[in-house]
């Protein structure tokens, strides 16, 4: 029988690309989180640089804009001593009509060793991984509605840092679940790492009932969704959903599903509040919560660099 291999793994089941969290075993996720712990301490040294990717060229290919994610990938690659080339593809060759694979062929001719790819189409990083040279590694930095694996991993790092263990946790993910690659990556990672209860919280237009099939508990009531939670992951409300008739108004949304101090009081007293950014204060989350004692939103950013260093160094050390 023909068995299709996971395209992220080599013959020894080692990670060579990071395209999606779905299908990766807990051992690989844990290895990435453990390695990130090492790099977190590197970021606190006098010399914030290690030579693991010295002489390697990392190309940041952002077909869709994202300042924060691109910057954290750039910092991570530079702290591993790689040369980083940022291509603002959205404004260059693609705009002139070049196809994705032609762009990749050209950059490969410039001796790229790693592509960090952000694309509005789901599956674009997978397509690149299938067509690039065998020594080239691909990291998905967010593709369409599909996956944002490094965000998922940095969320897991954050949760493990504060809660130590996944096995007794109630995790509530609140907001636009259906369009969110972050939510999808978080759900896959939490499931693989053994979190027993994951709740998807939001209005019916953004949290359809069939999400149950991903193994989550669907809650259309905010109080029900966050009562007793250990971890609350708030998602950014994308403005374009407002005009698409999926929501009445921003004010209405905040009243029902915005995280205020009063609603946060329903969660466990030591619950942590996370958000992948950028934050819309007063739309999905109250300023008092963003700046409050339970918020770990800024530590998430710090952990994100260490997690991206871990991912890049692990895949660069494994060969196809």
């Amino acid at each position: 029988m023909f068995v299709r291999r996971n395209p992220q793994l080599n013959r020894n089941d080692e990670l060579i690309h990071l395209l999606s969290i779905e299908g990766l075993p807990a051992s690989i996720l844990t290895h990435i989180l453990d390695t990130a712990g090492t790099f977190l301490s590197v970021n606190e040294r006098d010399v914030k640089k290690v030579p693991l990717l010295r002489g390697k060229s990392v190309f940041n290919l952002f077909f869709e804009n994202s300042t924060r994610t691109r910057t954290t990938f750039e910092i991570a690659a530079k702290r591993l001593s790689a040369d980083v080339i940022n291509l603002d593809i959205a404004r260059s060759s693609t705009a002139k009509g070049e196809s994705l694979l032609d762009t990749i062929a050209n950059l490969s001719a410039m001796h790229a060793d790693m592509f960090v790819v952000r694309h509005s189409e789901s599956g674009a990083p997978y397509l690149i991984a299938q067509h690039c040279a065998p020594h080239v590694h691909v990291v998905n930095a967010g593709d369409g509605r599909h996956s944002h694996p490094t965000q998922g991993l940095l969320d897991m790092y954050t949760i493990r840092h504060y809660k130590k263990d996944f096995r007794n946790l109630v995790v509530a993910i609140v907001g636009d679940i259906v369009h969110s690659r972050v939510a999808r990556s978080d759900i896959h990672a939490l499931t693989t790492l053994g979190a027993p209860e994951i709740r998807a919280v939001g209005p019916k237009t953004l949290v359809p009932g069939d999400l149950k099939e991903m193994g989550v508990r669907v809650c259309h009531d905010m109080a029900e969704g966050i009562t007793g939670a250990d971890v609350i992951i708030m998602l950014r409300l994308q403005n374009e959903r407002m005009s698409g008739g999926m929501l009445p108004s921003a004010g209405e949304y905040f009243k029902t599903f915005g995280l205020s101090p009063e609603k946060l009081a329903l969660a466990k007293p030591d619950a942590i509040v996370m958000h992948p950014g950028p934050i819309n204060r007063g739309v999905e989350i109250d300023s008092a919560v963003v700046d409050g004692a339970q918020s770990v939103i800024l530590p998430q950013v710090t952990f994100g660099i260490a997690v991206r260093m871990a991912v890049m160094s692990i895949i660069a050390g494994n060969s196809a």
Binding site: D34, T35, G37, V50, P51, L52, G317
Partner: peptide, 16 residues
């Protein structure tokens, strides 16, 4: 983090 055989052996677990 400074090994010269990184490209052959990769990063071992528990380097911290």
């Amino acid at each position: 983090l400074h090994r010269d055989d990184f490209s052959q052996r990769g990063l071992s677990a528990g380097a911290d």
